[in-house]
Write a protein that binds this DNA or RNA. Structure first.
Lengths: 104, 104
DNA sequence: TTATATTTGTCAAATATTGACAAGTCATAA
DNA sequence: TTATGACTTGTCAATATTTGACAAATATAA
């Protein structure tokens, strides 16, 4: 599930039009359309606003929004999965940061 | 292990000076210094060239280089780990893309 | 047809990134 | 002390990327 898909789901379940949400975000309808289709990326504050407007879980939307950006960043690289693992390890940093970059 | 740290390790093990590698990359020494300290990001082609110059594994360096970028992107977000997991799922896409965004 | 909703393409403005330069610190040698 | 070499820091202009607006297209329904 990508961010835009989820926004569309939520928007349609509330029977709102793109132009209505676009107006609330103070962008035009074409821009909103692009965000929904994943063609353009929403700004962080727009994500928070959408969570409010759509009465959706803020963390869920932030997660999808951030995941899209991560995916975009790594999708063309052979080492994508390894890079995600190493990045994840940076959070669980202990003395034992093994950084085994030689996995599949 | 971050990209710059690894570059520094490799550079020192070969007893090369920053200015020597900088010249090979056609950037100045301050720029190289910043890359090594993680203050600036190397370009992809520079990573490949460094792998050659330092006789290092290309995939290892690309992994660290990409992981730094991923980490930079998510490090300030509470949902960082979830986002990495969702992004990872996008690679293993099957019909069952469950996208459980409601984890810790 | 007409009206409404959404999408597509293009452009300029805003923003972010890159690299060069000058000047700084730090360590060592003379 | 001064001088030298390696590296670092701060700032700026050039470049690249992203954002948003606009016009026009397509789609869907009445």
């Amino acid at each position: 599930m990508h961010f835009g898909e989820r926004i569309k789901e939520l928007r349609e379940s509330k029977e709102l039009l793109q132009r209505q949400l676009a107006a609330s975000l103070e962008i035009d309808t074409p821009m909103f359309s692009k965000i929904e289709r994943g063609d353009r990326r929403a700004k962080r504050e727009q994500v928070l606003l959408l969570a409010k407007l759509l009465e959706a879980n803020e963390d869920e939307l932030l997660t999808l929004w951030l995941a899209d950006q991560v995916y975009d960043l790594v999708k063309d690289e052979d080492v994508a999965s390894n890079a995600l693992r190493v990045a994840e390890e940076h959070f669980h940093y202990g003395k034992s940061e093994s950084t085994n970059t030689s996995r599949v």
